[in-house]
Nucleic acid binder design. Structure first.
Lengths: 386, 386
DNA sequence: TTTATTTTTTTCAGTAAGTGAAGTTATGTA
DNA sequence: TACATAACTTCACTTACTGAAAAAAATAAA
């Protein structure tokens, strides 16, 4: 017999969690609506909301004229100012730090200066953190955690950056370093996982139990939500889509093998390939523009790249059957040749059965996406611990 | 902070479930060992085991001389004869029915005759079921469910066979038909999922939270366990590894596209290809023998097939990072060219990081594998409902 | 204006499933 | 015989719920 699709299931196993999830999805709800959507009894909703109201996590909105019989509803919403979170993206050329509120809204942003060692990064961060809190007028005591998105290989459970080529880090306990420097709990994850968490909590996947997120940067990363939980894999390496072999006779990848997806569709490789073909471009938007104006080399590069990505994602779709695949375009391809080729390759390489039931969604990355996503990790951990 | 690796988590969320899981993994344990391995308090263990002992699900073994100080332990084990399950594999040329006990041991086996409609199948099954129970001397009242493994597309939640080419079925509510005919609860799933459930409960994956199972039959199927639960995908289509595109210029697949894995490495396609190349073989064992004796065509076919499978599984490994990949060889390749090529292709197409942490295990399918796996679905559902 | 109706929310007693700490049991050892 | 030790049991307590009845706050009807 099919189970009812209530909220009382992972990642939130309790009535408290179900209430929070419902209010993250719905902006505002009355107690009776909460009971309805979560499947939790009205009695329990009263209890839970009372606790949350006392703590200031929830607020009651002034009740409206009802316009019908019966006791009027009292709308509840999450108090965005109840808690704040810091988020840092480490590993790009610039290192943005943001502060978000409980609902994932970015309140303030700051770019960290260049740095050397992890300790120096921590020092720079402390300074920027203080400044950002001052300008945003946020009491330090209300910042409940910091999330760090690292482009590299991490051990999220231990807060360890196992390896980062960009940073030249190896087994750096960056979460601990940051937690001690800022005196707040710290969590880390890689870019792709961070983005997926952001999508799940504050983004385009709030209602989904199973989805995959693909992040297009200098390399390509992916992450999976399965049964409402981020799935990191047996040893934290799930989502390595960038090193799926697309063309065994292709060019050498820095992983030592040939023809990995990254070497064909990664932003870094694409820029190299364009340069080698005599095209002078600063970013992918310019490459797309060349293609738009009929440049055959640009068109070919983008088409081959999009096709390769599509083939890889087609495998992902058929293996994992996600409800939605969310592409995050951080390279500036926009809605052009690359995107079209990707979409077509996906459609051409999956069974008809998947076509109707898999949503493929592209989005241009907003400027503060990575640090905001990093902050959402801290938000998740905070809300999960409530 | 890393969580302790206790049993009290999905799929069993309760102390009862944790006790059952521990005893499925360990043959026999004392109460104190149960408390230790599950993380449940001794008090709760006493309570739970008492209930189970009363019901006859557990038995105490006569306590041994201790050989050391202190009160001696009392070993407990699951009473295999407490419950029995039927399992049927539908869709092969033969249709085996088995009865297993609570620990997954096959007690009796019967091959169902050819059949026509689902109703006729049910009728044949009822007869065979009675006979099997008589010869095995199992009281009908102790059979707690029947599992049905269908080669085709199923909706497990609704007990529906959505489509089966082999059977010419379309939207057949086979679970309901069987439940009514046999007067016991019935569940269905596809072959690959059934095998995965069997591996998790009674097989080579009892201790694993995340693993994938690959079933080599006339076509190739796969299934994933993630976080200790079978992951069926957003709409039940996860694991479609057989239609991953390997060679876009390859031969036409019956799905309408070209070069799917099934067309290169599926048993059916391989037999066709061997025949077309002038080789007369009855099964894959014979093709492997030809290769062993130096036949270049046989060697090439097997090598290409194994390579294709390996490439697909490499993608799976990098996307999902399972702890173990379990191959079930139902075609009789054995330990030959195919297996070697598969293993090599996997190793050549994954990052070094995955090499050390991913176990690749091949196994020849035992004769009653499918019906036994089907029965394990019923066993799982029964134990989950306790 | 008073009473009835309706819907939301709260109260309250009850339950399921645990935990921790103290007590009991059954054995070996001095 | 008394003590030490480890395995198990008992019991009082807690947490997180549920269901049913009661209370609250509005509109609608008499």
């Amino acid at each position: 017999m099919p189970a009812k699709d209530k909220l009382l299931k992972p990642p939130f196993r309790s009535a408290r969690g179900a209430v929070i999830t419902a209010l993250l999805r719905n902006e505002q709800l009355s107690r009776s609506e909460l009971s309805e959507t979560t499947g939790v009894s009205p009695a329990a909703i009263t209890e839970v909301t009372q606790t949350f109201l006392q703590r200031g996590l929830l607020v009651e909105l002034p009740s409206q004229a009802a316009g019908r019989r019966g006791r009027p509803t009292v709308q509840l919403r999450l108090q965005a100012s109840h808690a704040y979170f810091a988020g840092i993206s480490v590993g790009e050329s610039d290192m943005p730090l943001v502060i978000t509120d409980l609902r994932g809204k970015v309140l303030e942003r700051h770019n960290l200066a260049a740095y050397g060692t992890p300790a120096e990064l921590a020092k720079t961060t402390v300074k920027a953190f203080k400044e950002v809190l001052r300008t945003a007028r946020i009491p330090r005591s209300k910042v409940q955690g910091v999330g760090i998105a690292v482009s590299g290989i991490v051990n999220a459970a231990e807060g360890l950056c196992r390896y980062s080529a960009a940073l030249n880090w190896k087994n750096v306990p960056i979460a601990q370093v940051m937690a001690r420097a800022l005196h707040i709990p710290a969590w880390i994850d890689n870019d792709a996982n961070a983005v997926a968490v952001g999508e799940k909590f504050f983004g385009r996947a709030r209602d989904l139990e199973h989805f995959s997120s693909i992040v297009l940067e200098r390399t390509i990363g992916s992450a999976h939500y399965i049964n409402g939980m981020l799935y990191r894999g047996h040893d934290g390496s799930a989502g390595e889509i960038g090193h799926i072999t697309i063309d065994p006779k292709g060019v050498l990848c820095r992983c030592g093998r040939n023809g990995c997806l990254d070497t064909i569709a990664g932003g870094h490789a694409l820029r190299d390939a364009a340069k080698a073909a005599g095209l002078t471009i600063a970013n992918m938007r310019e490459l797309e523009e060349l293609a738009l104006h009929g440049n055959p080399t640009a068109t070919r590069l983008l088409r081959v790249a999009g096709n390769a990505l599509g083939v890889a994602v087609a495998s992902l779709v058929q293996l994992n059957n996600p409800q939605r695949v969310l592409f995050t375009d951080m390279e500036g391809f926009g809605n052009g040749v690359f995107r079209t080729a990707t979409r077509q390759a996906i459609e051409n390489n999956i069974l008809a059965r998947f076509l109707g039931s898999t949503q493929i969604i592209f989005n241009n990355a907003e400027p503060a996406l990575l640090p905001r996503s990093a902050a959402s990790i801290a938000a998740f951990e905070y809300l999960d611990s409530i």
